[in-house]
Design a protein around this nucleic acid. Sequence first.
RNA 1: GCCGGAGUGGCGGAAUGGUAUACGCGCACGACUCAAAAUCGUGUCUCGCAAGGGAUGAGGGUUCGAGUCCCUCCUCCGGCACCA
Length: 992
Amino acid sequence: MKKYDHLAIERKWQKEWSKAGLYKTPDSIKGKENFHLLVEFPYPSGNLHVGHWYAFALPDILARAERMRGKNVLYPIGFDAFGLPAENAAIKNKLNPRTWTEENIAYMKKQISSMGTSFDWSREVITCNPDYYKWTQWLFLQLFKRGLAYQKNTPVNWCPKDKTVLANEQVVDGRCERCDSEVVQKEMLQWNIKITDYADRLIDDLAPLNWPEQIKESQRNWIGRSEGAEINFPLEFAKKDIPKPNFLLLHGYKGSAKGSFKPWLKEELEKMGYNVQLPDMPNSAEPKESEQVQYIIDNCQIDESTIIVGHSLGGTVAMKILQKINRPIAGLVLVAPAIDSAFPGAEKRPFWKDFSWDIDYENLKKLCSFRVVLSDTLEKAHRGAYLKQLSEKLDAQFIEGQAKKEHFNGTEEPLVFAQLTPHITVFTTRPDTLFGATYLVLAPEHPLLRQGFGGQAWVDLLDNREEVVRYIALSAKKTDMDRQTNKEKTGVRLEGVEAINPATGEKIPVYIADYVLGHYGTGAIMAVPAHDERDFAFAKKYDLPIRQVITPAGKFVGELEGAYTGDGVMMNSGAFNGKTVAEGKEAVTEKLGSKKTTYKLRDWIVSRQRYWGVPIPIIHCEKCGDVAVPDKDLPVKLPDIKDYLPEGSGKSPLAKAKKWVTVKCPKCKGAAERETDTLDTFVDSSWYFLRYTDPKNKKEFASKDKQKNWMPVDLYSGGAEHTTMHLLYSRFWHKALFDMGLVSDSEPYTRRMNRSLILGPDGQKMSKSRGNVVDPDEVVARLGADTVRMYLAFIGPYSEVSSYPWNPNGVVGVRRFLERVWKVGQFTAGSLQSTENANIEPLLHRTIKKVGEDISALKFNTAISALMVLLNAIEKSGGITVKQWSIFLKLLSPFAPHIAEELWREAGNSTSIHLEEWPEFDPALLKDENVTIVIQINGKTRGEVQVPSDSDKSAVEKAARATVDARLVGQKISRTIVVPGRLVNFVVSEKV
RNA sequence: GCCGGAGUGGCGGAAUGGUAUACGCGCACGACUCAAAAUCGUGUCUCGCAAGGGAUGAGGGUUCGAGUCCCUCCUCCGGCACCA
């Protein structure tokens, strides 16, 4: 008998299949349904481990089975080829990262081929190739053009060892995910992507997806939506006595009273009891200075307590009004005002010719003492400097901050609000406890403290400025790590300022404390010590009043006796007394606050100060600001450089390529510089599956027609570590593209499964230092790819997340099975087949059914078990026909494609078994002639009996009765349950 | 602390509410062999000589019948966490 020579067989068939182009997948095949089976493409680290086998060879089982079942299956592969390791290796070994990467890819392709997977290599995608990253750049620019990618000065996670910025997701317990160094906070200008704009949809669209609950829940937690209210607390400074003003809000060019933040601002101010005038200006699309100024003077009331707030051109009008009426007012707040001709592009503005810019700054200063100019950092590049000059001429407080939308065009602009009347906005999920708010707490990094109010920086208005500044500096030094581990509450009271609880009118103290986080909510809280553990601890320490507002009807929180967290009734709450918590929330929000939803999710920082990545296709121009590289100039190719070491100052090594950096501005043709940061590799992997659908397209990232063949992905299999990173980013990316009409679905993946982990034989995670790494190449050489594939499939259900130790004996067990298959195959092919074996037929048909179902459910382990049961029976049966044997081989072929092919050919076939159809089972043949019926008495098994499987209920009962008759003596049968084909249960009681 | 998932032999695991422990590993014994390996066969939850009894993390419930459904609790794994 021939030996089972796995090496020869596997090599032979891998070559044959590749030669025949067996797995080259056409976009469509008439009459066949398409099925897109996606696995996360690997990073070209240079060596395949068992985890890769588990990731690629198991979904291949499904791919093969679906093909046999008549589907056109796309099982694509590629390489996620940008990233730090290539660069680190390049620095260490002094070679080009591209060379390193390409060599690794070549080697890994060989290794992957040894698995016998049915990948379609003709659609291979490699993210570091210019024909791919051209489109990464193009897609990034689409986001940029829609305001979804922006630059922001951000406190970022900085890894001192890798000398780069890390995304929040790459920081684990305050340490760098990669090198384990402690991460420090550093303020740097970074490219961000506005994933927060999609927070709601990313949560809401999860519900209908066919994803494991665990993944959905993790994403929901990560996004961390909570619904509550924002409430404004007016402040009173001891040092700054400000009489109650009224407000006149003026909109700008092409604006209206309904535009941008104005209606919101009016409502907020009115809630706090101020008078607000918000007129529509005449001819706002073709404004004339004299007309607008005169209209306001004629139609609005302006007196010494009026603060005029002008937005954009409205700011200019505000100055002109004051100049014209020439009598004192309370204040002038200019929100990004339109300014004189020094402003680039001003001459192109149509209103230019109708406005004069002769402003007597000295006179304006005399007429009002409260002067503020607000500038938005988002438009800083081309405006900030001029606004700064204006503020100097006016001797006004210059406030530079981040607007919600460029040029303060957001529907809410808290920065503007904050200048008009001193107040603190807090976020709370329990507005009903407002009556119990006995103090306020600001995060030390709260912007209000740095910004000015009424001509003075906020902190300067305090009596204990020094102490406060010291505390701010101290907490800035603390890492996130410290703040998380040391939960002892500290804080400093702000002396010389008090807040007014809008519900009770009571004056309450204001603190700064680092138990309040700057980046969450508004960075400020109302402390309700009676109903919050943290506030309680703080109140105890600083001896602050604790006031209960909900009856203690439910759960108690720790020491907080009487504190209520469930549903109950409000008390000590004025007009709200007697309302339930739910009613209270609603009522308080409506009357004293505004509804607000906050998220833990922060924007995605995508810039990396590294060489080996996609260059960000932006050009910085002094005059024009940040300009997108025009499509015709894409891709912005990564230049060859010699020194890959980062500068360490926060600049990418690309900054050293001076020639490459220096360019002409595409808009004004003036001198400009390229952005030198590169993109996070998660950007590359956010759309790679789209490229599979149309990998060679030179005109588009993927044509919509081609996408339609394969999108959305039918099943996406990957690692659990990507749950809140890649999976969230790529969902966001897809939604953004969907909104731009570039893709047809709002979700990219119909079904997702997370794969389990393969541990070392000792049950520990495989690692070189533990010496428990299983080398798949070695096992494949010794036992064969088919054995490794089947062993991994047999180890446990693929559909559930767990971790399985590699059992060297288990692999041998599977090899034994294949040896037995081989032996039976030799017998069948070598001799004339025995006569039709009818005894095996029912089992054979049951196995067809079970293996098919189990593969669909990704329960490869039970499918293989069924094949083993069948083989055991075949061996004992004394012989089967070639037809029966062929069915067995077909069932085996997705799991062990090489041996199945070899035996299939030996059984006399000239074409590949992998082009065969999946066998069909005959429902009539599923049942054996006889079935074993279990006989129970009072639910306990008391015997069994063989009956023909078509017996009716009474026949079964009769047979059962006869079998256990002896036991029923002296018993009364009160009920008999007959489950056909299964059991008979006699319910009996003692005869009395 | 909040949320999600899961607890079954010595191990990986199997069971449409219907014989708990399929299949494989390990182990024991036997056959073959001078011997060993490989292979094949038999056995292998537990108490009991047996008849029988008990067991799916613990306790309760629903049901003729519960590993499976419901309630309370315990443990492990995963996510979030000073998130207001």
